[in-house]
Design a protein around this nucleic acid. Structure first.
Lengths: 302, 302
DNA sequence: CGCTGATTTGAATTAGATCAACGATGGTGG
DNA sequence: CCACCATCGTTGATCTAATTCAAATCAGCG
């Protein structure tokens, strides 16, 4: 009821901004932000990012299945629903916009129009929300493929989260109206689309599940297992390496906690031999997934 | 590498804000932002202002809109996407199974086949998951209408949550295969279906947002506002009554906390005059939604 | 009217967020 | 190529708030 689009929102935002700016300046003047100078900023940002993580327990999900046990390279990588949708769209000759982003570039922010769907072609992106004023919570992490944006064919208003590129990224934007038109002409497309949406919903569910446990270590264990499942590469001996560069801050954002808490939990895991990779290593290495999943505290029964 | 978000995001945001800010303020912000030391603080503040507003709070969502401003009862209640889907399905003469449940009866549990979609006709149901020590977390609450079950047209395995009737309930089950067949024949159906799925995904997103704040009172305030919006009945003076019987335990399940904590927070709210309804009353009455939404800590509610 | 379950309240315990402080790292600009 | 500076990883002390544990009151129901 209060939050209308356009003018009203902006007005409200500006109001808040000014309010905060004043507070901020006052505090800065007092030297509160002085010492850690940027630390304060960083902290806030970090907090902001806390939200989402791709968590969730492993679930094969047919189409998302990793093609692990394959004799040869000959095997065709299974196509994700999002990819099928995109292929159909391209096949139909719809007008689509391809764009590239550099690391840390913002793809869209709350308030941007939600009149299109975004498809990830390559690179890694994350979507996140802000909460409690300045903490951020990552709501999704996608790599090389997948669909994002307001997942709906009707425009309900505007984006409600941020989308940011984590690496060099290529994406394709397609207008929802065009997709709707295509769906009308080719019903098959809707299957892929429904599946793509379902995939994302499943991820949301996993995220929810991962946010439930009270202990940070549980949530973190959950997250690590999920990451391993979605982005990991097994070496055959049960050891999985996650080849995404994630700082503790990033992990904290995904687990809705703080950098320090993550550090603590991580070193604990390392002490227990559950994970490897020295502090210097960028990639996270899971040594003992079995034990790790016990640390999830049962996580979510399914 | 990826982690330069701070700067980029902030910059972008600040830029956006500045567009709307009055000249003077804009200049001031820019000036400050130049100074490294303060930049962090200002950035953060800016973000806070920007972010906290766009989300959360009420979201119109076209089809979900409450028909408040209507001259007469004559107005036709807007049809929810789920209802449209069901109507289409009935119209097509698909075989569907209607079932009734008594309060507390279980509709399905994890492990049950997920080969069908469930439509709620009347009554109230909730879906929930279990986590840690057999605690349960309510993931959805539906009343009189809506779709539930594994929201996908392909069977991915089995149900992963519980669904239980809270009141006398009537539901309809439809096989996914049948729906898929229908979609192929009538593309229009897929629109309603996509919308129905989107609606549920939106709810999941809201749930995620509501789980982020650390404080129980924030989450609870969030929840209450959400319930008021979805199930409440306004009396014209700003007072909203939620006509669903929910024990503190139920509320606790929805905010991922404990009965006691909920009790504490509720009596606190009552003391502050934010909510009414003596302890005896079954229905929750929100007296001051304004104040309540301040207690959400900017959390993202809806 | 006496159960049983739900609601409150309070005390003790615990875990995470905060606040601080460094050393290490990495990227950038001079 | 080197130096600087912001960020990252880590650890410890302190503070706050929630979970736990325990107990008393209240409400609904047969």
């Amino acid at each position: 009821m209060p939050r209308r689009k356009g003018g009203a929102v902006m007005e409200h935002l500006v109001e808040r901004l000014i309010q905060f700016l004043c507070q901020g300046m006052a505090r800065a003047a007092k030297g509160i932000y002085r010492r850690p100078a940027l630390a304060g900023g960083v902290y806030l940002l970090a907090l902001l990012g806390v939200l989402s993580s791709p968590f969730g327990r492993s679930r094969p999900a047919a189409h998302t299945v990793r093609y692990e046990a394959e004799g040869e390279h000959s095997a065709v990588p299974p196509e994700s629903p999002a990819t099928s949708v995109l292929r159909e769209i391209e096949g139909a000759g719809l007008r689509l916009i391809e764009r590239s982003f550099d690391p840390a570039e913002t793809i869209y922010t709350p308030g941007d129009p939600d009149d299109r769907l975004y498809f990830l072609l390559s690179g890694t992106i994350r979507t996140y929300k802000m909460y409690q004023n300045l903490k951020e919570a990552t709501t999704a992490l996608l790599k090389d493929e997948g669909i994002f944006g307001a997942l709906d064919l009707v425009e309900t208003g505007s984006q409600e989260e941020f989308a940011e590129a984590l690496t060099k990224t290529r994406i394709v934007e397609v207008r929802k109206a065009a997709v709707a038109w295509l769906v009308k002409r080719k019903p098959e497309v809707s299957f892929a689309l429904l599946s793509a949406f379902s995939d994302r919903r499943r991820m949301s569910d996993d995220l929810i599940a991962s946010l439930l446990p009270r202990e940070v270590s549980s949530r973190l264990a959950n997250l690590l297992l999920n990451l391993a499942e979605r982005f990991g590469e097994e070496d055959g001996t049960g050891v999985v390496a996650v080849n995404i560069r994630l700082s503790h801050q990033d992990l904290a954002n995904m687990v809705a906690s703080t950098r320090e808490a993550v550090s603590k939990a991580m070193s604990e895991f390392r002490r227990e031999g559950l994970i490897g990779g020295g502090r210097t290593t960028r990639t996270i290495v899971l040594l003992d997934r079995e034990a790790l999943s016990e640390r999830t505290d049962g996580g979510v029964s399914r």
